[in-house]
Simulated scan of single mutants.
Amino acid sequence: MTTISTGRMISHPFGNANEGQVCWRPAKSIWAGVMMAVALVFGPLTFSWSGFTLFVITTAITICAGHSVGMHRLLIHRSFRTSKLVERVLVYLGTLVGMAGPFGMIYAYDIRDWAQRQTICHDLYAHRRSFFVDAWWQMHCAVALKHPPAFVIEPEVANDGFYRFLERTWMAQQLPWMLLFYLLGGWGWVVWGTAVRISVSLTGHWLIGHFAHRGGHQGWAVDNVAVQGYNIPKAAVVTFGESFHGNHHAFPGSARLGLERGQIDLGWNFIQLLMWLGIASAVKLPENMMPREGLRRL
């Protein structure tokens, strides 16, 4: 197979994105399983409109400002620039989503992107398996490749003391907020502001990944790669633009994901707000980027 290096993932001559074994990851699995169990059992028992409102607000902030803008578009793809303080705040909010620390998120995105750019890749990276198998694999397992690429994070990020701290303590970062929620609203706020929020975020992230790699609207195709991306317009609002994954495959470094007329991208709108405030600059968009190799308009 052709080996392709993508940024932090550096292929070697025997690099292979297909040969590997799916392995259970206990810490990842227990974390996701406990959050889901608490949400399913205690969510209905502790429901209140104030708790539900807390869930909606905290989910919107952590997914939009944190995950979509801070982790994905800024830290992982460097689609715009901002001050180190603002960057750290956004990445911190992304850590509160409960998926991983900053280094773990970079690795998860980059290894999948590297694998999908090959001519053939493992079924896990392509979301090819059935609905429930893919759910188990994505939220409870990982692929141990026989010949993985080297993973090198740029020193500016790898040596950042705050990011190193977040990486070591990303699960524990929920604790101060759980205490605050308990003091303000009791156990119901803890359940809805933490367990329900995290379980919905984790499940939603997997669902978008599952369906956005299997079919849907596609404005562009990329030739000679193992996996195509597709857009899911109906999920645009609740994913803050992340469901336009076909557009993202076409222009991975773009700060704007909703590229077609009528495509709602609230993450991009948040970046526009940062630009208006003078906080964001050097914004990457399709018109000022080099098109990726093999890109073809449909």
Rank of each mutant, 00 (worst) to 15 (best):
H67T: 00
V91S: 03
R261E: 12
W170Q: 01
G51N: 12
P102E: 04
A37Y: 12
R117W: 09
E87M: 14
D123N: 01
Q272H: 13
G15R: 07
L85E: 10
C141H: 09
T95L: 09
N231P: 11
G43S: 07
V86P: 05
S199M: 08
L184N: 04
F244R: 00
I57H: 08
G241V: 00
V283R: 03
I57C: 12
P252F: 13
F80P: 00
M9T: 02
H147Y: 13
Q174M: 13
W192K: 00
L274K: 06
V237A: 14
V237K: 08
L277T: 02
T239K: 06
P233I: 01
L40E: 07
L180I: 15
A65L: 13
M35I: 04
L184A: 14
A126D: 05
W206F: 13
Q118V: 04
I153T: 02
R8I: 06
G51Q: 06
T2C: 07
V152N: 09
A142W: 13
P291E: 05
G20W: 08
G101I: 08
V34W: 06
A32M: 09
Q272N: 12
F47N: 08
S29F: 14
E154N: 05
F131N: 00
I106V: 09
Y107E: 04
F151R: 01
G215T: 03
L298K: 12
V143N: 01
L207P: 11
S5Y: 11
A60S: 12
T53I: 13
N288V: 03
H12V: 00
A236W: 05
Y92H: 10
G262P: 12
F42D: 00
T46F: 14
S83I: 06
H72M: 11
I61Y: 12
L175E: 06
R292S: 00
M289Y: 10
D113V: 01
H213Q: 13
L183C: 09
L75T: 03
T3A: 12
D265G: 06
L298Y: 14
F131E: 02
G193Q: 05
N224L: 11
R261V: 04
S11H: 08
